[in-house]
Design a protein around this nucleic acid. Sequence first.
DNA 1: ATACGATATGTTTTTATATACATAACCATT
DNA 2: AATGGTTATGTATATAAAAACATATCGTAT
Lengths: 108, 108
Amino acid sequence: MQVRYKFWLEDREHVFGEGLFELLQEIEQRGSLSEAARSLHMSYRQAWGQVKKAESRLGQKLLLTRVGGETGGGAELTPAGKWFLQRFQLFKHEAGAAVEAAFQRYFG
Amino acid sequence: MQVRYKFWLEDREHVFGEGLFELLQEIEQRGSLSEAARSLHMSYRQAWGQVKKAESRLGQKLLLTRVGGETGGGAELTPAGKWFLQRFQLFKHEAGAAVEAAFQRYFG
DNA sequence: ATACGATATGTTTTTATATACATAACCATT
DNA sequence: AATGGTTATGTATATAAAAACATATCGTAT
């Protein structure tokens, strides 16, 4: 038996969770939303919609995109995007460890 | 902004989570599955199925039921049912507090 | 015997979510 | 001007999860 868990941030509605976290991570290191989506085996449509929804709910941009040009276009994280990515990383690492520890204490 | 979280136990498949926890809690203090379901605003069918599935996956009974009689019938927790109820209560309390603390540290 | 309140299940319908499909616009390069 | 790779979006379809519906059985009390 093992414990499973999920964390996410809400502001009345879901705004930031594991899915967006992984997506931003990939975008940061690839410089492209479509490439990030491909590497996560999700459709571009889905990835784009996820970002768009979060931005609208947060009231701030997470991506700075450009269309056309030699590479076709691209995307990079705004400062806000980087901030969320970094914070969520630290948060989920710490919270996850605590949950695992509690699980061991009561079911291990 | 606030943090939200979910914990559950798996043994290859989902076996015990918040829904079952609340259900067992109500059954324990009401002595009836149908009454517990009503108080949680869920259908008897749903509640019964949830227990049945968990029992099958855990390989042990969580409820001791009786049908007919003056009250129509009833249900009470087996020792295993009580054990899971109690352990999960303690676990989720502790884990939840830790998650909230981590959230405050990084987003508070 | 009938009624009542509970457990016990199978089946159908609805709802929500995710996936797929389709198309347009942009712009450096060839 | 045609191409390629991207961002950008609307719409339709499929899948899964939840809710609703429908019955059967059981045992005490009336």
